[in-house]
């Protein structure tokens, strides 16, 4: 039975908005994953944990400075720097061999989780709302912070686009993505580009986690839940395709959210998997082809 009328319309609007808010947060994290894979052939299983680390560090940043936004910036920066270390220290020897990168990033994932468990503890923490305002639109109340997060995510995505397509660093990155040997021959320091890319990908995941931290529960295993969704999005969008990732995030998250009007949220996740399976049957390379 489909409920109709004004109440249904307002609920539809509500879940649709909620779906888009999540789409923008998830797009940040998914772009990081897609970016790292597209350029470096690294299947980053630890990506969910970098997201988690972003949230945890924001929690600490908030506690230390009293300012949530300062916490977000610190968390993003720290995880970005950590990304450089991980790329240099752990991933460089296995770059270009995706199967090996899975093993190494699983190791990194466990290390990050266990360190957070040791330091942060095993019980989920709930952060206070940094922007406790409620927006009322057509009789629907919606937390203002989520709208703000959507805006910040949108700005971050625009900044990423600007970096990739309007700056020389972006040109180098794209060149390396297309053909690393030729880029190397042209004088681009491929090693530096790699380190920078991984750091950028990690920082995007952390930013996603930092922005999501007041919405979700900060918990050392919070990355798992998201990692599954992010992989669905990256695979549906086409591995390594940034446009595809963006489009897939903006389709799947609102779709999953709207489906919750008709089925339970767990069943809605099943539908996301079915969409993935269907896309892969018809287009095994995903919706969009990677640049390479």
């Amino acid at each position: 039975m489909v409920p109709l009328g004004a109440e249904f319309a307002s609920r539809f609007l509500f879940v649709l908005v909620n779906g888009f808010v999540w789409a923008l947060i998830v797009a940040l994290v998914a772009l990081g994953l897609s970016f790292i894979f597209g350029l470096m052939d690294i299947v980053n299983i630890a990506h969910g944990d970098l997201y988690m680390l972003g949230a945890v560090l924001t929690w600490y940043g908030l506690a230390a400075t009293g300012n949530f936004w300062l916490g977000v910036i610190l968390a993003t920066a720290v995880v970005g720097v950590l990304g450089i270390g991980l790329e240099r220290g752990a991933l460089r020897p296995v770059e270009g061999m995706p199967a090996y990168t899975v093993v190494v990033t699983i190791g990194i994932s466990y290390i990050l989780q266990q360190v957070v468990l040791a330091v942060f503890g095993g019980s989920p923490q709930k952060m206070s709302d940094p922007f406790p305002m409620v927006i009322e639109f057509l009789g629907v109340r919606y937390p203002g912070y989520r709208i703000l997060v959507a805006g910040v995510s949108g700005i971050a995505l625009l900044a990423l686009w600007f970096l990739l397509f309007k700056t020389s660093v972006g040109l180098w990155i794209r060149a390396t993505m297309q053909d690393r040997e030729m880029a190397n021959a042209m004088g681009i320091s491929v090693n530096n580009i790699y380190a920078m890319t991984f750091a950028l990908g990690a920082a995007l995941a952390a930013l996603g986690g930092a922005l999501a931290s007041p919405i979700v529960q900060v918990f050392y295993l919070m990355g798992y839940d998201l990692l599954v969704l992010v992989f669905i999005i990256v695979i549906v969008g086409g591995l390594g395709s940034l446009k595809g990732t963006m489009v897939a995030a903006l389709i799947i998250c609102p779709l999953e959210s709207v489906m919750t009007l008709f089925v339970t949220p767990t069943e809605a996740r099943v539908i996301s998997f079915l969409v993935m399976a269907a896309v892969l049957l018809v287009r095994p390379q995903g919706l969009f082809k990677a640049w390479r």
């Binding site: 879940v15 919405i215 979700v216 998201l226 919750t260 949220p265």
Partner: peptide
């Protein structure tokens, strides 16, 4: 992770 879809019901 997000209670909003449930609260919407």
């Amino acid at each position: 992770k997000d209670f909003m879809p449930y609260i919407a019901q």
